[in-house]
């Protein structure tokens, strides 16, 4: 967990010392210059465990300044423990403005989702990445995966996807679905649902990826080609949902299943809470929105 305010108070702006920031900043500039390539960096200990997104936190800390407005999301939501803790951390160590509104943020740190609202030029999306190497499950040795990237040896990756087709009749990979960036590097988009892959392509926003435990930073500049790997006879497809959001009626947003009772009752609602709340505020209604506040605010209680 995160250390107390009094312990943090003696640290530099944005927690990291200036030399660490310089090292991370140099890595970020190289990452932008070589889209999709994983730049090694000397990851620092942060006052939170690795699973909490220390890579993303270090990238944000090296980038953030007093004029920024920060949004932090976890699985699309601003109010989960992980998102709340990271947001509170940056409020303490950098005193920046924070927001839950996608449109107001200059920096959005994310675990596992890209906001539904289209990002704009000048915004930076920082991903918390657990495993940056898309070839790792094929080849555990770093020296070998590095060679494979150097030689553009991506045949094994295609074989793995094709095995899915042989087994399931389709590509079954739904998270961390590999992409090719600007026709060169195969890249892991982090465990976002493949639903979000098309949002990475030609995005006006800068996308930065930080993996703390694995000590890698990579990037997709704005207006860059990002293509999900696929086959001519089995083209890439995103998930579709059979019904609209139960609260805001949105069609075409990414939905999470929320359990309503112990008899198997459930509803599907937008995983992007800011997007869903905005739509409800605009008067959009879903089929369960008669009592949206109770269901949305405390689904666990509703399940009892």
């Amino acid at each position: 967990m995160i250390e107390s305010h009094s312990q943090l108070a003696t640290y530099n702006f944005a927690y990291l010392d200036e030399q660490t920031k310089r090292m991370i900043r140099r890595a970020i500039l190289k990452a932008i210059a070589i889209p999709g390539y994983q730049v090694p960096f000397a990851s620092r200990e942060m006052p939170m465990p690795y699973g909490w997104g220390t890579g993303g936190v270090q990238v944000t800390a090296a980038v953030i300044g007093p004029n920024d407005t920060l949004k932090v999301i976890d699985q699309g939501a601003d109010d989960t423990t992980n998102a709340v803790s990271i947001r509170a951390f940056f409020q303490k160590v950098s005193n920046v403005q924070v927001t839950t509104k996608t449109t107001e943020a200059t920096i959005i740190q994310t675990r596992h989702r890209i906001p539904e609202t289209a990002l704009q030029a000048g915004q930076t999306l920082v991903y918390q990445v657990p495993i940056p190497e898309p070839l790792r499950f094929l080849e555990p040795r770093e020296t070998e995966t590095r060679k494979m990237h150097a030689l553009e040896e991506y045949g094994l990756m295609h074989v793995k996807l094709y095995e899915d087709i042989a087994r399931h009749g389709r590509i079954a990979t739904t998270y961390a679905y590999p992409v090719k960036v600007e026709g060169r590097y195969v890249m892991d988009p982090s465990p976002t649902p493949k639903f979000d892959n098309p949002k990475m392509h030609q995005s006006p926003a800068l996308q930065l990826f930080g993996a703390g435990r694995e000590k890698r930073i990579y990037a997709i500049p704005p207006y860059t080609e990002v293509v999900s790997l696929d086959f001519e006879d089995h083209p890439f497809e995103i998930q579709t949902f059979s019904e609209p959001c139960a609260l805001c009626g949105a069609k075409g947003s990414y939905l999470d299943e929320v359990i309503l009772d112990d008899k198997g009752g459930s509803m599907f609602v937008c995983s992007d809470t800011d997007f869903c709340e905005d739509r409800q505020a605009e008067g959009h209604r879903g089929h369960l929105s008669a009592n949206p506040a109770q269901a949305a605010v405390n689904p666990a209680e509703a399940a009892e």
Partner: peptide
Amino acid sequence: QKVFRALM
């Protein structure tokens, strides 16, 4: 920080 953001 300001100069780095300009560089980025």
